[in-house]
Nucleic acid binder design. Structure first.
Lengths: 329, 329
DNA sequence: CCAAAATGTGAAATCGATTCCATAAAAACG
DNA sequence: CGTTTTTATGGAATCGATTTCACATTTTGG
């Protein structure tokens, strides 16, 4: 391997001068600079990142912790992150928890050891153990997808109002009996806020929600299927519309309806969240909320980069959303 | 930051001895070991990866280059990779080309500079420029999804026979006029081999294929939609079945059929490749090929790890597949 | 009991960069 | 012209680990 020492010798200067050329710092004569640059060019030399990191304590690596890479939301966020980061010479060290909550903590520690310059956490919970750990890290962290207390950076979505809007749409379309397929409320954004938006909007419109209409599912298609089955078998008063907190849950619900010959949207309207790619190709196409996840990734990257370069940038970002009204309602 | 020097001082030994404890190497007395371990425990010290890498030339990082993170195949591969690698203490440095072929070369170089221990390339082409670059790297590289010349490691799928089997299934079901939605043949696995399997099986069964039945698409749902439109509008003799080289293309084709009131599978049978999660929830459920991408990722990781530890492991792997026969044929 | 082998330890070199500091030559200034 | 200031350069320390080597002590074996 060719090192800075070799370059220095070949160009007839000291390592210091080579370093100056490399980093564009300090004084260096036009003559010396040219000789060094020529040698660098000829040898296709590139400085060792490790030696650099050891000395400067900067790695140009951002750690990304995500629950799974196999659903669209995190994938889109990572795409957005990747774009913004790579433009600025940063790379992504990936840590996939496979939905194992304990691993979030573990990976935070691992990334600290790797001395990443910053961390993006695509979070599924906001437990205090996690937040405490983040604060002790001494590394800039951005949380994506959850709103947290003031002194941690985050970028999230306006889940509450999205849910209210979606509910409001269904009410406008004449529905008064609306079911809800949610997830565990430990996931504040998806579990708690979307449910709260739904309930508040129902209440605001003077509508009641039967307990059997509200189902708790987990994040997969089958769970949506099962939830819809529960709704229809347990409810005394059958609802005419259902909101599912993710498109995948909505898809599961739709498959149950289809299997049982229940017409969508005539006998049961349905709506989801997330604007999955498939949602527009379903029959009928699915009404859903588009959260612009890629932009969330880009914003998170910008927050982190600003922090790393001691520049100002909004540290708490709540992104807006678009309501995609389609044939399922 | 607490360093090895601090630990040495606190435990009353030299840095050398601490290093010995850390790496379980050389002679170290029970007494000294205990003291060092105690101090390490108390300080929650962890050695700097950069200092280590600088000295040992090992980073415990594997670079992964992929065309996109937003489709299921690469996501599953990365999941498989991640599992196997993290179990062995390796981490993933992600490089997303966003389907920009030039970036594959660029990232190979970047990962070399980062001194990753190995590289996994989820490839969409096998051009000689790429292969040449790989050979000059002096880093173990595994290519996933493409078969390449002998002296490069790869793990891929038996695309050719999968395509023949799928074609054979349609022929058995009584179809003799079968259309094909493919992609550019520069992608040898998806573009060339799947097409060749289809054509060979047709020929072997004495069936002819009209030129209009064979469409070339790109990797997105709309392109499948458009290809099906082409097939039906241009063909003089209308086919009764269509094979699409990805599930997404099949989904696009199905949406066109649906829009035009063409029954599936009665008027047009359809089949895809890849066993996307959605494929089983489509109406009708889609017949497809399951490639077990996660396992491919795991195998690639095993190949790489074996190479890194100078152990023997099969360097060219062609994984089998399962034919999922469902309602769309 | 003495030589050889095994065990235990630390000083110092090393990896490949950056950066502090000293020094010298050239340019600017009064 | 003598004194600052600016420009240019390199020596050496440093970052935090591993590893080579030398040396001392203990154990083993004939």
């Amino acid at each position: 391997m060719v090192t800075i020492k070799d370059i220095a010798e070949m160009a007839g200067v000291s390592r210091t001068t080579v370093s100056r050329v490399l980093n564009n710092s300090g004084y260096v004569s036009e003559d010396a600079r040219k000789r060094v640059e020529k040698v660098i060019e000829e040898t296709s030399y590139a400085p060792s990142e490790h030696a650099k990191s050891l000395r400067t304590k900067k790695t140009k690596v951002i750690g990304v912790i995500l629950p799974t890479i196999q659903t669209e939301t995190p994938s889109r966020i990572v795409t957005g992150l990747g774009k913004e980061l790579s433009e600025n010479g940063y790379q992504i060290l990936l840590a996939n928890t496979n939905l194992d909550k304990a691993k979030e903590l573990e990976y935070l520690e691992l990334l600290r050891l790797r001395q990443v310059d910053g961390i993006v956490l695509i979070a599924t919970n906001t437990e205090s153990e996690l937040l405490d750990k983040i604060k002790t890290l001494n590394i800039p962290v951005v949380i994506v997808g959850q709103e947290v207390e003031e002194d941690i950076m985050y970028v999230t979505y306006d889940d509450y109002h999205a849910a209210r809007d979606l509910t409001s749409l269904l009410i406008q379309r004449g529905h008064s009996k609306i079911a809800f397929i949610g997830v565990d409320e430990a996931d504040r954004s998806v579990g708690y806020l979307r449910k709260k938006g739904f309930l508040d909007e129902m209440k605001a419109s003077g509508l009641t929600v039967e307990p059997e209409w509200v189902q708790k599912a987990i994040f997969n298609i089958n769970s949506g299927h099962h939830a819809m089955e529960n709704i229809l078998s347990k409810a005394v008063d059958t609802p005419t519309a259902t909101i599912a907190v993710t498109d995948r849950l909505a898809i599961g619900a739709m498959s149950y309806l289809r299997e049982n010959g229940i017409g969508i949207p005539d006998q049961m309207a349905i709506a989801g969240f997330g604007a999955s790619e498939m949602s527009q190709y379903l029959i009928p196409s699915l009404t859903t909320i588009d959260y612009q996840n890629e932009m969330a990734g880009e914003e998170a990257a910008k927050q982190l980069l600003a922090k790393l370069h001691s520049k100002k940038y909004q540290e708490q970002i709540i992104l807006s959303y678009r309501l995609l009204v389609r044939d399922s309602v």
